[in-house]
Write a protein that binds this DNA or RNA. Structure first.
Lengths: 199, 199
DNA sequence: TGTACATCAGTGAACGCGCGTTCACTGATGTAC
DNA sequence: TGTACATCAGTGAACGCGCGTTCACTGATGTAC
């Protein structure tokens, strides 16, 4: 065994993480395998030793966000169970719709970054998306009022978070974009029965 | 003047409309100029007599939806000022989040169909998007309670309509997709102070 | 401890394809006489 | 009414480029002795 046995796995993870960042920035079609491999410090030829195709990598990049980077994402955008003065649901709504999350394209949630690509991608990618969405719904359910109404509220909160950010990201008028996010935030708070506070 | 003077304008409109449909179905990168011109009943060479570039056409396709197809869109999805038993806002929410709108990819609102492409497109395209969003906000404002709260509600309603549909379009589990749309619909009704009714 | 070797991760040239764009040409049309 | 002509919309071959993918080869690594 000429290389340490986790060598391949580590390289693979490095490629996936590089791909996740670049896909977030430029979309699926906007990123070449050359660019991904360069970002990972390798050359193009090595790619197919790790992945079957570009599409496979795409699915893995979304999954990697969900399973590997959730904690880091929450930390970056201020979602912290120790902060007792605001509920977890409030923290999620504010973090998700924050300026920081809007502007940090690399670290952004893939639900915002890649909605168009995902809708036209293959089943593997769409399932990765669905798992990400489900985990977001569960977060709001677990930190909400419970019951069928709690689930409805959670789904609406996710729609508001993602919808507000998808729109804000596209609008060239940043004042309007901020207004959309603010309105989505207020509505998401109302849906969860959460008290509105100054930002 | 060898051709009728509206000949060029009509051909241009035919190309734009073909492009709008195909972009909706397959995204900006998923559609070639060959495919667009074939859809319009022409061949590739004629394209550059009408448009400077593919990107210019993209912006025009979005604008064409807003200015040329608004009435037809509303008619297709059941938004009708004559129907007095439901408010215009209710009709818009139900029409936008309906099964019919989700499944009719060609006629779908570009805010749903192309969010990822638009975010990375040039300024011209983004402005076309912004106008479309603004007209949707105005619709809800004009048919809402008025005042600053009416505007906030309108913005939230747009975020719910677009967010609900963007997510629904990507989810492979159609039961979950329907649940998301239903929750978005209920929340949008609450935001507008509208009575919930059976669908 | 040092050396030959087997393994396999990574390299980079090459292939084929599709796309956006250009351009010299064709041919359909309305007008002038 | 009929014909020659000027105009310009549309054609389709061609170009150049970038991309996904393949593959024969290189060279770095741990192991056997």
């Amino acid at each position: 065994m000429p290389y340490p046995k986790d060598h391949a796995a580590r390289t693979r993870a490095r490629i996936t993480e590089a791909a996740r960042r670049l896909f977030n920035l430029h979309g699926f079609n906007g990123v070449s395998i050359d660019a991904i491999m360069a970002e990972a410090g390798l050359t193009r030829g090595a790619f197919y030793a790790h992945f079957d195709s570009k599409s496979t990598l795409y699915a893995e990049a979304v999954t990697c966000f969900l399973h590997g980077r959730g904690a880091e994402w929450r930390a970056t955008f201020g979602i912290d169970p120790q902060r007792r003065e605001r509920s977890m649901a409030t923290q999620m709504i504010e973090g998700y719709l924050s300026d920081a999350h809007l502007n940090d394209l690399q670290a952004q949630c893939p639900l915002i970054a890649l909605p168009g690509d995902a809708a036209r991608a293959d089943a593997e990618v769409q399932e990765a998306y669905q798992h990400l969405l489900e985990s977001m719904v569960w977060f709001f359910e677990a930190n909400g009022r419970g019951g069928p109404e709690g689930r409805t509220a959670a789904l609406a909160q996710v729609a508001l978070c993602v919808g507000g950010m998808v729109l804000a990201r596209t609008l060239p008028d940043s004042v309007l974009a901020a207004e959309v996010r603010q309105a989505a935030r207020a509505a998401a708070m109302r849906e969860g029965g959460l008290a509105a506070e100054a930002a």
